[in-house]
């Protein structure tokens, strides 16, 4: 204890003080909760304390959830010297924004990676939406023989882990020239690899299923009325079905974009030097201190991590509803 006090007196103990406070608070609350649950269960007083206990519990978990984000943010603006100090500081002494500049220059070309990833993400999302809408429409509105069997078979493939497909898809991609091999790929090779990144994942059975369910809720009478008026199927789809299913389509778009942003295994296998998607670039990037073999420049690395993480967080904050709705029905990421 003396040791602790001495340290806080020396001014290094901001951490210590905060931690002691937190511990005291947590202990207090656990005590309260136990007391309430055991003795005052049926009283209004107990309700108040129980509520209080719940809030503290949630707050503690929230701190645990947020801490890595906080650590990432403050580390990204520290100097290497401050970051590497024996006692890490909880707030940067000096905001060193140059970390952010350095990830756009030199070895880590984060700007280029962003462009590559955006291009792959946007193209694959748009194409995937087209395929998904057409198939969902066929399953929801059109009548043809074998529809139910095909639909059941498609749903059955969802049970198989994706890794099983990856092996043969890698062979197929190699055969089609979609796997980048050279150190300095030319335009043709880059285009091939681009196809390799986009095409194998265009169809998502889950999204088709999700959209079909949505399309089915649109009353058939609308379709028949449109038919009587002589509207073509495509026009009906474009003018009625798509606007009415906009929320689901937005969910699909967001999840698909997130998937492209976060994809790692497949791009790492096939993209080589032709396309560097952010996640691959981040993991394989060389963040070492210049001239050092194994001393990682963590602040610079954290700046890159912030730049990769932030877009998703911002999109989430603005489109919370759509993302959470999509996710709660799927259990898949991307």
């Amino acid at each position: 204890m003396m040791n602790l006090l001495a340290r806080s007196a020396m001014g290094q103990g901001g951490v210590t003080a905060a931690i002691i406070l937190a511990v005291v608070a947590v202990l207090l609350v656990i005590g309260c909760v136990v007391l309430c649950c055991l003795f005052f269960d049926k009283h209004a007083v107990s309700h108040f304390f129980a509520q209080f206990g719940i809030y503290i519990f949630l707050a503690v978990v929230a701190v645990a959830v947020l801490f890595p984000f906080y650590w990432m943010l403050i580390s990204s603006v520290k100097t290497v010297e401050e970051y590497n100090a024996y006692s890490p500081t909880l707030w940067p002494q000096k905001f060193y924004w140059e970390n952010y500049a350095s990830v756009f220059a030199g070895d880590i070309d984060l700007g280029g990676m962003f462009l590559d990833t955006l291009l792959v993400g946007v193209v694959s999302t748009v194409l995937s939406l087209v395929v998904t809408v057409l198939s969902a429409y066929a399953f929801a509105r059109l009548e043809f023989k074998g529809k139910n069997i095909i639909f059941a078979l498609m749903l059955a493939t969802m049970m198989i882990p994706g890794e099983l497909f990856t092996i043969t898809n890698y062979i197929t991609a190699s055969g089609l020239g979609w796997v980048s091999q050279s150190q300095h790929p030319d335009v043709a090779e880059r285009f091939g690899t681009f196809c390799g990144l986009v095409i194998p994942f265009l169809v998502s059975v889950f999204y088709i299923y999700l959209l079909r369910q949505n399309f089915m809720q649109i009353p058939n009478e609308l379709y028949l009325a449109a038919k009587v008026d002589g509207t073509s199927d495509l026009k009906y789809l474009w003018k009625v079905m798509i606007p009415l299913s906009a929320p689901t389509l937005i969910s699909i778009t967001l999840l698909k974009m997130m998937g492209a942003w976060n994809s790692y295994v497949w791009p790492n296998l096939i993209a080589g030097e032709a396309w560097t998607l952010v996640t691959v670039g981040l993991r394989s990037g060389n963040f070492n201190v210049p001239g050092s073999e194994n001393l990682v420049n963590y602040p610079m690395q954290m700046a890159a991590v912030v730049l990769v993480t932030l877009p998703l967080l911002i999109i989430f904050i603005f489109c919370r509803k759509y993302i959470m709705r999509g996710v709660s029905r799927s259990g898949i990421k991307g």
């Binding site: 057409l134 059109l142 197929t172 095409i199």
Partner: peptide
């Protein structure tokens, strides 16, 4: 009227699924 139309709408998805899902299952 819609027999062929249904398959037409499904065509892109079915082709892609055949190449990148069905074939991998068999081939793997």
């Amino acid at each position: 009227k819609n027999q062929w139309k249904g398959w037409l709408y499904l065509l892109p998805a079915l082709v892609l699924l055949a190449v990148f899902t069905l074939w991998p299952i068999i081939n793997t």
